[in-house]
Simulated scan of single mutants.
Amino acid sequence: MTTTARPNAAPGESRVITEIDGPVAYVSLNRPDKLNGVDLDTIDELIAAATALKENREIRAVVLQGRGRSFCAGLDFASAFTDKKRVARYFLAGPRLVNRFQRVNQVWRELPVPVIAVVQGHCYGAGLQLAACADFRFTTPDATWSILEAKWGLVPDMAGTVPFSELLPADVLMRLAMTGEQLTGERAVELGLATEVADDPLAAALALVEQIAQRSPDSVAATKRLVYGTRRGSLRATYRLERRLQSAMFKARNTAIARKAGAAKEAPVFGPRTFG
Rank of each mutant, 00 (worst) to 15 (best):
A49D: 05
A52W: 01
E58W: 04
E58S: 15
I59Y: 12
L64Y: 01
G66Q: 03
G68V: 05
C72G: 12
A73M: 14
A73W: 04
A73Y: 04
A73P: 14
G74I: 11
F77N: 15
A80E: 11
F81P: 14
F81T: 15
D83Y: 09
Y90P: 10
A93P: 11
P95T: 08
N99R: 07
F101R: 10
F101Q: 12
V104K: 00
V104I: 11
N105F: 06
R109L: 08
E110I: 08
P112L: 01
V113D: 02
P114Q: 05
A117I: 09
V119A: 05
Q120D: 15
G121F: 00
Y124V: 10
G127N: 10
L128I: 15
Q129P: 04
A131C: 12
A134I: 04
F138S: 08
P141I: 06
P141R: 08
T144Q: 09
W145I: 06
E149Y: 11
A150Y: 00
K151Y: 10
K151I: 13
G153A: 05
V155I: 13
V155P: 04
P156A: 13
D157M: 03
D157L: 00
M158I: 06
T161R: 02
P163T: 12
F164P: 07
F164H: 00
E166C: 03
L167K: 13
L167D: 13
V172A: 01
L173H: 05
A177T: 05
Q182S: 02
Q182Y: 00
T184I: 03
A188P: 10
A188Q: 04
